[in-house]
């Protein structure tokens, strides 16, 4: 538990650090060289992009940033998106809400396998269309089998089918997450509201977390994620659905850009059957607490001690 925390007293705030020195030097160099190569009006844009990229390159881990630095990086990323893709995104770095711990419940007797949730997730989170990345997997299951690895996800017929049930799998946001322990750069961590997030700019793409996750909850970008400009969800969060790059890990964030605004995650919102229950585990009156109190619930691979915040239940 303790080794997940980063010591904040470490970096000297006064005077010049190695980092700030390098940053200053590199911006000057980038601006100079860009000006030399291109020159004129396009050169200004190019050097602005170079400058922004350099500053981005030398920024801190998100957890070490002050609020000011968080605002600055978000501002830079918004500018970069405008230059690179030509879209006006709105990016937030909204902090967790106090006294909130997100939890999720999935009703396996109600889900009909329509997969509206999977599609809504792809749209909401700007997932790579080329490699067909999906955070959620949904399986058609034989009665009595509760292990999703025995299910069939490639069914192509009208659903639901008699005597089958449907089970969705995604990141379970474990309280005791193995992926966090595996990360050598501390690029992934659990936020105070329970969401396990990734700082894409600190991920080195080693995929240790992917190997460590017993639930196959993480996705890797083998290539540059492709999303048509007109389909990009412009409402983004630094730790959530902002555009990823080649060679970084990504995963379900419980739609941090939505949930921290009080909204349901896109999957829960899209579900036409009400099989997906989302809410605050610390609120005794919440829907999720009602499910935990009154229903037969179980968690996937509970014996591993990962403490997932995602329960399956039956009516």
């Amino acid at each position: 538990m303790k080794d997940n925390k980063i010591d904040k007293s470490d970096p000297p705030e006064n005077g010049r650090t190695r980092r700030s020195f390098l940053k200053g030097l590199s911006i000057a160099a980038a601006a100079g060289s860009a000006g030399l190569v291109t020159g004129g009006c396009t050169g200004e844009v190019a050097s602005e992009e170079m400058g922004l990229k350099w500053e981005e390159y030398f920024k801190k881990n998100y957890r070490l940033m002050s609020q000011k630095e968080k605002d600055e990086t978000v501002e830079r990323l918004v500018k970069l998106a405008k230059i690179r893709v030509g879209v006006d995104i709105q990016m937030s770095n909204q902090a967790p809400i106090n006294n909130v711990l997100y939890g999720y419940a999935f009703n396996i007797s109600r889900c009909k396998g329509y997969m509206d949730c999977v599609e809504a997730c792809v749209q909401e989170n700007n997932l790579d269309r080329k490699s067909k990345t999906q955070y959620i997997r949904l399986f058609e299951m034989e009665p009595g089998k509760l292990d999703p690895s025995t299910g069939d996800g490639k069914y192509h017929h009208e659903v639901p089918v008699e005597d089958k049930f449907y089970m969705g799998v995604q990141c379970f946001h474990c309280e005791n997450a193995p992926c966090i322990k595996a990360c050598p750069t501390k690029a992934t961590w659990r936020e105070p509201d329970g969401i396990v997030v990734v700082d894409y700019d600190w991920c080195i793409g080693c995929r240790y977390c992917l190997a460590a996750c017993p639930y196959w909850g993480r996705r890797f970008n083998w290539g540059e994620p492709q999303v048509p400009a007109e389909e990009i969800n412009l409402k983004q969060h630094y730790l959530g659905n902002r555009m990823r790059m080649k060679g970084v890990m990504e995963k379900c964030t419980f739609c941090v850009q939505r949930t921290r605004q009080g909204k349901l995650p896109a999957c829960a919102n899209a579900c036409p059957t009400g099989s997906r229950i989302f809410g605050n585990l610390l609120d005794p009156d919440s829907e999720i607490r009602f499910v935990l109190k009154t229903k037969k619930v179980f968690r996937f691979k509970e014996e591993l001690g990962t403490d997932p915040k995602f329960w399956y239940f039956m009516d």
Binding site: Y114, M115, Q134, P148, K154
Partner: peptide, 15 residues
């Protein structure tokens, strides 16, 4: 009762 319909997409196996 909910109507039957075609799924929106498909899922790959877990592993």
């Amino acid at each position: 009762a909910f109507k039957t319909k075609m799924p929106e997409t498909y899922s790959l196996p877990l592993d």
